[in-house]
Every structure is written in structure tokens, then in C-alpha cells.
Design a protein around this nucleic acid. Sequence first.
DNA 1: GTGGTCTAGACCACC
DNA 2: GTGGTCTAGACCACT
Lengths: 133, 133, 133, 133
Amino acid sequence: MFIELDLQSETPLYEQLINQLIEGIASGALKPGDPLPSVRNLAENLGINLHTVNKSYTLLKQEGFLQVHRKKGVIVQPDAMPGVTAEFEAKLFRQLRSLAAEAAVRGMTEEAFVKQCRRLYGDTLMKRGGDGQ
Amino acid sequence: MFIELDLQSETPLYEQLINQLIEGIASGALKPGDPLPSVRNLAENLGINLHTVNKSYTLLKQEGFLQVHRKKGVIVQPDAMPGVTAEFEAKLFRQLRSLAAEAAVRGMTEEAFVKQCRRLYGDTLMKRGGDGQ
Amino acid sequence: MFIELDLQSETPLYEQLINQLIEGIASGALKPGDPLPSVRNLAENLGINLHTVNKSYTLLKQEGFLQVHRKKGVIVQPDAMPGVTAEFEAKLFRQLRSLAAEAAVRGMTEEAFVKQCRRLYGDTLMKRGGDGQ
Amino acid sequence: MFIELDLQSETPLYEQLINQLIEGIASGALKPGDPLPSVRNLAENLGINLHTVNKSYTLLKQEGFLQVHRKKGVIVQPDAMPGVTAEFEAKLFRQLRSLAAEAAVRGMTEEAFVKQCRRLYGDTLMKRGGDGQ
DNA sequence: GTGGTCTAGACCACC
DNA sequence: GTGGTCTAGACCACT
């Protein structure tokens, strides 16, 4: 498993897990239709409680990234992934604006900031070639 | 006052306040050496608790964005703003990676993502010319 | 076979099966006295477990929609279908009230709601004329 | 409190609670902006666990029926209620079709069925005059 | 064995 | 005081 949680972090475990699963999908490590580990299994591997994993899975299901399949258990959305919803745009907007403002105040130039953005988007996907579909 | 808090938001009030003050500095609405409203005053204007404003100010002072001035009270850092610390880089990295991954999964192209990043950085600074509307 | 199960649905398979068989009877696709596929056969065709089909049949027999026939195996109730029992009325009441309330809150007018109800009842029976496509 | 849970029912407690809260909104007993009891408080009154109430509230928040207000606690959506989404239409369709089919097979006429639908929609709203806005 | 539900008790952040 | 998070342990329905 490629997942690593930071027990000291201030971001909740279930949220870290959500982020890492989405990154897994983005990178191609998790492909549409792939089965995920069972809640119990993953919880044990990560050394956390079953309910915490369950919460992450549930939220990802509600968002449409995951599905429960009656035979395969929990799987990655095999059909269309959720698109760019208004909620996501709002979240993106809010978070980017804060980050950009702080970066600017701290003296980071626009080019440095944008370069970092591009790099992180690219990193995410680059692994696809070596690893995914 | 250019500050607007969203009582329905999931972001804590003190954090919203921090963000908006930093955005105010980035845009030039708040310039180095400018005095900020007193804790009591701002709390009253925003209709929130003293403690909340206090917490925001304290954290911003700790980070080096604000200072206490004998006569003017709390002012915007008149000397060098805090630079790009390791903590900030880590935060930037973590948050951007999550956002980029989700954007990618949702089908947002790299160009669209980067464009949005640049736009939000630019928006922040553009107001500087106008000197703080 | 006119039955289609959704493995991603939150409704249990045995319940989906029950619903579709009742809809089959309602539409006339299954007529009183008609034999049903054997448990084994149907399970194989649908790609699901024997137990699941068995559970559906058993419950439908208990309710009186199906019967066991010495020679034909399981058949559709050839005599009087079960009537409007107190249990059914209670279920109908409970579910309709919830749906109606949510529809109302979501801004669906009474006429739109009732129209939908009538349409779905009508759809079910209209196929009867065609005798079970 | 107007809420009554059936501990024997096969429908989960949190779902019963959700339904009753929506019915409360539909009837006008709960008006936009009204504060709801705290999770602890309601849980105690209903004799169930805090987490069960929490789950109901959380789901209703996600759907947009409720909001957390930083000062008033949990309140009924003060702005626009969620409209008729595709998911709701699908749910309505699925459930009504099953109910209609079973009603038809049990010998309930279209008029009797539709009348019941209209009655339950009406009941829900009628209380508004006496009780609500 | 799976996911789903419920309970119980604890700690924390926020206001 | 509030809601949010996490843990622990239990039972059930479904396949």
C-alpha cells in the first residue's frame, strides 16, 4: 500500500486518507474498477480504526469517486468520474486564493508560484506513464 | 472594513480572519506600518467574540506579519515580511498537491489548472496598483 | 428474462429481484399460473448466488405472490393474489409520506408529485395490454 | 419534540430521524433559520446515541437541508432549499414504481393509489397553515 | 468475509 | 457549551 498517514498532522486522518486515495487515482495507481482493500484490512494495515477508514470511503462514495459493488466490495468508480462541480471550483478558488496571497506576501514571485502549481499537477500525472494504464 | 466572515463556512472564524488580513496585505489595502483596529473594536464590528480576534492577531504576530507598537497598537510589519519558510513550503506543497490531484481526476486540464493559479495570484496583486480600494 | 440487477445499487439483490418479479406480475409479463425459472437456473442467468434467488422466492411465497407446484416447480399465484393488507398499507403510508415530504421541501408541487405517481402506476399496467413484451 | 423513533423498525434510526426532520421542515414545524437541538441534547431526548443523531445531521447538511452556524449551532437551511436533483428524481422514480406495482398486484385501483399519494402530500403541507409561517 | 449500523466513552477545536 | 474526530467493540444483513 502506498498510503502514509501522519498521526501528528492537524488534518484529520480520514481527510489525509481521502487525499491520498484521490492522488492514487490521479496517478493511475488506482484504476477505474479496481477493488480497494476492505475497511478492516486497510484499517489494520494503517494501524487506525475501522471507522476512520469507513468514513473516508463513505465520503468518497458520496462524491462519486468510489462505489460499493455487491460482489467486488468497494471499487474505484468504473464509469465517469465526477466532473468539476461548483463546490469543487469554490474550494479550489478559496484555497488557492489564500495560498497565493500568503505566497505573495512572503515574497514568492508569480512565476515561482505558478511553476510550483504546474510541477505538482505534472508530478501527479507523470507517474501514470510508468505505473498506470 | 473589507473583511467579511462566513458564519456558515467550515473554516474557523479566526482562520478566515487571518486569511483576509493576509490578503489585505497582499493587495496593498494594508501597508507596512499601518495600524490595525483594536481587538475590541474589530470584534464588535464583525460581531464576533474578542477571543477570536485576539487569536488571529496573536498567530499573525507569531508568524511575523504583525507587530505591537507602543503607540499605534497592533500594526502591519513595517520591516521585512516573513519569507518563504520551510513550513510554508511544506504547507504549499501539501495543499497544492491535493488540489492538483483532485482537479486532474475531475478532468481539469493542466492548462486550466495553472491558469486558475496564475489568475488568483494576479488578482491578489492587481489591486496593489489601485492602492487598496 | 426481463430482469436486470444493479450490483452497484444500495438495495439488496434479493429485494431488487422481488421488486422486479412483482413488477413483472403487475405488467402481465408474468401471468397467474406461469412457471418461474428454477432457482439454480435463474441464479446462473443473473450471475448471482443461489441463496439470493432462494431468499426472494421464499419471501414471495410467504407473502402469497408465488406458490410451489408439484410438477411445474414455482409458479405465479394462480388463485387470488394477496390483497391490501394492513402491513402493506402501513408500508405504503410510511414511504409515501417520506417521499411526499421531501418532494414538497424540494419545491415539487402537489400536481407534479401526483402526476408522477399516476404515471408510474399507469406505466406499470399499460404493458398489460401488450401482454408481457 | 415531535420526533418518534421506532426501535423495532428495520429502517435505520438515523434514516428515520432524517425522514422526520424533513417532514418537520415540510410541515413548517421547522422553519428556515430555526436552530435544531444540539446532537447531545436530541440524542438524550430520543434515548439514542449521540453519533446516530450526528450522522443524520451530517447527511442532511451534505444534502443542503441543514447548515452549521458558528454561533447558532445547527440550523435549518436559511437560503434556498435543495431543489429536485437528478438523484432525488431517480429515488422517487424507483420507490414509486415498486410501490405502484405492488399496489396494482394487490388490487388497489389507480384512483385509490393516486388519492393516497395526494392525501399524503396534502397532509404534509396542511399543517403549515395552522402551525407554520 | 463484506459493508452498514449502533453504542460508548474520550479528546479537541472553536466560540 | 457546541460540533468534529477517533477509538473500541458489538451485532446484523448480505453474498
